[in-house]
Design a protein around this nucleic acid. Structure first.
Lengths: 139, 139
DNA sequence: CTATGTGCAAATCTTTTGCAGGCTA
DNA sequence: TAGCCTGCAAAAGATTTGCACATAG
């Protein structure tokens, strides 16, 4: 891990008032180490961290991802009933979900334009607007 | 079950080339018996069918809902990572998801207007466009 | 030093599957 | 009758939890 990556990871954890433990730094480095947004599953991230040589248990990956979400550093995205995806980008934005590979990416921002929303039931407000564009390989 | 409900349920199963067994009729009656669209979870539907006095195992509810989807009679809607919802309405349409109760409903049709979609990656086409408006109780 | 984190294994929850017997066409 | 269906229990997969030990501030 480069010093820049370490620095960025520490700052990121500090934003969420989370202590920079070895495991959290290892995960943070993979998530925000290069400043890019990431979309990961717990299992995928676990595999990635093991590949770097660090040892982190899968349960800790789950707990840590949840801690990152609670701290407002990431958000969970629901795209597939069987798996949870975690996104380092925090604003509401549309996603592409590739049915063949299961990969999740941001859809180019600003290109989705919603003009009118259905009127919200009395007493409620919008917590989140999820848009998932499911893609299948063209025949 | 009224004769009209029975008739409608039988026709519905016939549309999907599914045999009208006792269990399927019991579930179909709850799903389309009154001509309204329904949004159910497997567990919720199981509870409902038990309440009518019919006995259907939970595994059969799962298998039957999946059979209904495969037959093109319903679609599965992904709104919450932990549970699957099944919708008797077959076209793409936005949903309201009530965070307090977990209930899922259709958002008033036609009131959502999407003007521009992000451009789709080369070689792919849209399989499905999911829009879920998550609602929280107003403070 | 004290409160937070972590690891592991076991528990939980939802959904799927194998197989023997039942029922529709 | 033949093949599709069902029930049950057990399996499977993802995620959470309990508890003893480790560690950041």
């Amino acid at each position: 891990m480069t010093p820049a990556t370490l620095e960025r990871s520490k700052r990121w954890l500090a934003q969420g008032d989370l202590r920079p433990t070895r495991q959290r730094l290892a995960l943070a480095a993979l998530l925000v180490g290069d400043g890019e947004n990431r979309h990961v599953t717990a299992e995928g991230l676990h595999g990635a961290v093991l590949a770097t040589g660090d040892r982190v248990s899968l349960a800790t990956v789950y707990n840590t991802l949840k801690a990152f979400c609670d701290a407002g550093l990431m958000q969970e995205v629901t795209v597939d009933g069987s798996r949870s995806y975690f996104d380092t980008r925090m604003d509401d934005h549309p996603h592409f979900h590739f049915e063949d590979s299961g990969r999740l990416t941001d859809a180019p921002a600003g290109e989705l334009e919603i003009v009118a929303l259905p009127s919200i039931p009395e007493g409620y407000e919008i917590a989140k607007l999820d848009v998932v564009i499911r893609l299948r390989k063209k025949a």
